[in-house]
């Protein structure tokens, strides 16, 4: 019996969250005293095996099939179900990303088994034997609330909540034996395949920008964002916004920060004319430093921020830009 970690990749490019979930899986395997195994899907990912060994995977199962050249929720789930059939793992762990959650939902639906999305590394109680229920803590509301849950299942299916486990190499790295296998794919896997695919050359994105200048309802109009654009450009950053802004059609949803938008990881986030609703906060709180600019000293974002300027953003934002230019001259 083992813990099986599903390794998320895109055409062989490892997704950073995959190493988090692999580390989560290793902690789980250590706890229940079993081996950690990994599975990569599609031959494009074969080259990952040695690296996964450094993170403690003893065996790396490699699903090979002509339908698995690209991601496919059905094909990936069928591959995992094939391995569950042959290896009978204790638990299957994937990353708490869109794809990770999607694939495990498909696995769970096939087995008619429960699947717990976005589990935290803390508070896990795994029980003495295979059939004992597990207790675990998962995130809700995009992370603003936790839930204690009990899980009764033969194979425990779960994803690791994002950015809650640091990817760490194993003290005693395994040899990572590659184990190619032919998954049993259902007919469906030939239907729900990617028909077309475009890779966008990502410049600075909202998720990765080091500076984000965010605007909310207080900006007042699409044109009102011009000074925010200016400030962002001066600092090599990008503009973000709240849902009030996207709902008004002032900006595209790709700029939205929050529970149903993007989680940022900036060094600095300027929150201008944003009240700081919990659903916005879960997207903004990944920033290392938050500077709120708001007319209301009692606004939630102001009380939670690192720094605040009380005033009209339409005056304050241009003044900051002017000051930057003055000092750079």
């Amino acid at each position: 019996m083992t813990v099986l970690a599903l390794i998320e990749h895109d055409r062989g490019r490892l997704v950073p969250a995959a190493l988090e979930s692999l580390t989560f899986g290793r902690q789980l395997a250590d706890r229940i005293g079993t081996e950690l195994e990994a599975v990569t899907i599609g031959s494009t990912a074969d080259g990952l095996a040695a690296h996964l060994g450094e993170f403690g995977a003893a065996t790396v199962h490699q699903a090979h099939h002509e339908l698995l050249a690209d991601f496919s929720a059905d094909g990936w789930a069928d591959s995992v179900v094939t391995l569950i059939g042959t290896g009978n793992p204790h638990a299957v762990v994937a990353s708490g990303t869109d794809r990770g959650n999607e694939v495990l939902a498909h696995v769970a639906a096939r087995l008619d088994a429960p699947f717990v999305a976005n589990v935290l590394p803390t508070g896990l109680e795994t029980g003495a034997d295979r059939n004992s229920p597990w207790h675990l803590t998962r995130v809700r509301w995009g992370g603003s609330l936790h839930e204690r849950a009990v899980l009764h299942a033969d194979v425990k299916l779960m994803t690791a909540a994002l950015h809650r486990v640091d990817a760490e190499r194993a003290d005693t790295p395994g040899p990572a034996t590659p184990a190619p296998f032919l998954p049993v794919l259902e007919e469906r896997a030939a239907i729900t395949i990617v028909r077309d695919r475009v890779e966008r050359t990502a410049g600075v994105t909202l998720a990765t920008a080091s500076v984000v200048v965010g605007g909310g309802r207080g900006v007042g109009s699409p044109e009102g964002f011009a000074p925010l654009e200016d400030l962002a450009q001066l600092l090599g950053g990008v503009v973000g916004c709240s849902r009030a802004v996207t709902n008004n059609g002032w900006r595209n949803h790709t700029d939205q920060v929050g529970q149903t938008g993007t989680r940022i990881s900036a060094d600095v986030y300027f929150a201008c004319g944003i009240s700081g609703a919990i659903q916005h906060w879960v997207g903004a709180s990944g920033a290392k430093c938050i500077i709120a600019i708001n007319t209301d000293p009692g606004a939630n974002i102001v009380t939670k921020a690192d720094y605040a300027v009380i005033g009209d953003l339409h005056e304050v934002v241009p003044a900051i830009a002017d000051e930057i230019r003055r000092r750079r001259d």
């Binding site: 699947f115 936790h146 204690r148 009764h152 299942a153 709180s285 939670k304 921020a305 300027v309």
Partner: peptide, 23 residues
């Protein structure tokens, strides 16, 4: 097979707000 036991509020992060000024 999955049942909620209880909801929990995550630990609050302590705020270190510095007000930089007005306007």
């Amino acid at each position: 097979g999955q049942a909620m036991v209880t909801l929990l509020s995550p630990p609050e992060v302590a705020s270190h707000l510095v007000v930089l000024g007005d306007g």
